[in-house]
């Protein structure tokens, strides 16, 4: 749910990175943080366990620039991917404007991806959203590893509706900005339609 501020001529949108545990959500945000000019970003906040697993969320505010005299800001959040943090995931989805699903391409994580995507749908529906109606982008992460599922298999299982999809390696940053750009674009197109 974006926030349009006519007084300060700003628009704020919320993007949530979803996906199974260890798929690379936090790594995506870290890369964006590292590669963004200081004046365009705020502090990155990570509420994590001692072993660097996301406990509640990561948060990264980005100020991308102006469109038609409006400053556009995107607030990037990750959810904790571990199954038992479901209550926290629901909270973070509140007010979401766009979702990135980060899939872990490794064969042994196929079921975890499917389960997490299902969980995303359920949690969105609980709050009156439908994934099909939200700006939504799919990222196949960890393509650098040897034991990955073929793209066609991932596509048929995780992206039957053919939303924009990107192969990525979040540790090197490959595909990270492409993914972010795609979801931001979908959000802005959505806003353009207006009435939201």
């Amino acid at each position: 749910m974006s926030f349009i501020n006519y007084a300060s001529r700003e628009i704020n949108c919320k993007i949530v990175y979803y996906g199974p545990g260890l798929c690379g959500k936090t790594t995506n945000l870290q890369f964006v943080y590292q590669k963004t000019a200081p004046e365009a970003k705020g502090k990155m906040i990570s509420l994590a366990t001692e072993t660097e697993r996301t406990l509640f969320f990561d948060f990264l505010p980005l100020a991308l620039g102006e469109i038609r005299g409006f400053k556009t800001r995107f607030h990037l959040y990750t959810v904790p991917g571990q199954v038992f943090y479901d209550a926290s995931r629901k909270l973070i989805l509140k007010g979401v404007d766009g979702v990135v699903f980060v899939a872990d391409s490794q064969e042994e994580r196929l079921d975890a991806n499917i389960e997490s995507l299902e969980n995303l749908k359920v949690n969105l529906e609980e709050q009156g959203y439908q994934l099909e109606k939200l700006p939504f982008v799919m990222q196949y992460n960890k393509r650098d590893l040897p034991n990955v599922s073929p793209l066609e298999e991932l596509r048929s299982l995780l992206n039957p509706t053919n939303v924009p999809e990107y192969e990525a390696c979040a540790t090197t940053g490959e595909g990270v900005f492409e993914t972010l750009k795609a979801v931001a674009k979908l959000i802005l197109i959505d806003l353009k339609k207006g009435g939201r």
Partner: peptide, 18 residues
């Protein structure tokens, strides 16, 4: 009356952001 301030944006506007 609600007119999205973004009603008039173009693909170029969006691309320029990045």
């Amino acid at each position: 009356e609600f007119q999205s301030p973004f009603a008039e944006i173009t693909d170029d506007d969006i691309d320029n952001l990045f």
